[in-house]
C-alpha cells in the first residue's frame, strides 16, 4: 500500500513524493505542497480530521480527503 499524508502520525516527518494535481487545489501547491518538499504533522483535530501540517515551512490545515491524494515517504 502506498503511504499518503493521511497515514502520518502526530510529530512524524515525511517527504512528499507525488501529488495528484487533479485532486489537489492549486492554492495548496503554491503553498509548497510539491514533490520533494518535506512535511510534518503538527496536530490532528478530533476524528483525525482536519490535519494541521507544516509543509515546506508553511503551516496549513487541510482535510483528510485532500491528504489522501498526497503520496509520501516517511523519514526518521
Amino acid at each position: 500500500m502506498q503511504l499518503t499524508l493521511a497515514h502520518l502520525k502526530r510529530g512524524e516527518k515525511a517527504i512528499i513524493t507525488d501529488v495528484s494535481s487533479v485532486h489537489i487545489p492549486l492554492k495548496l501547491l503554491e503553498m509548497g505542497c510539491l514533490p520533494g518538499n518535506d512535511v510534518m504533522l503538527v496536530q490532528l483535530a478530533p476524528f483525525a480530521d482536519p490535519m494541521y501540517l507544516n509543509i515546506n515551512g508553511s503551516y496549513v490545515a487541510i482535510r483528510k480527503e485532500t491528504a489522501m491524494h498526497i503520496l509520501i515517504e516517511k523519514i526518521e
Binding site: I24, L28, Y59, I62
Partner: peptide, 11 residues
C-alpha cells in the same frame, strides 16, 4: 462542487 479546504495557520 469541489470540496477542498486549505487554511493557513499563522503565527
Amino acid at each position: 462542487s469541489k470540496t477542498y479546504f486549505v487554511v493557513e495557520m499563522p503565527n
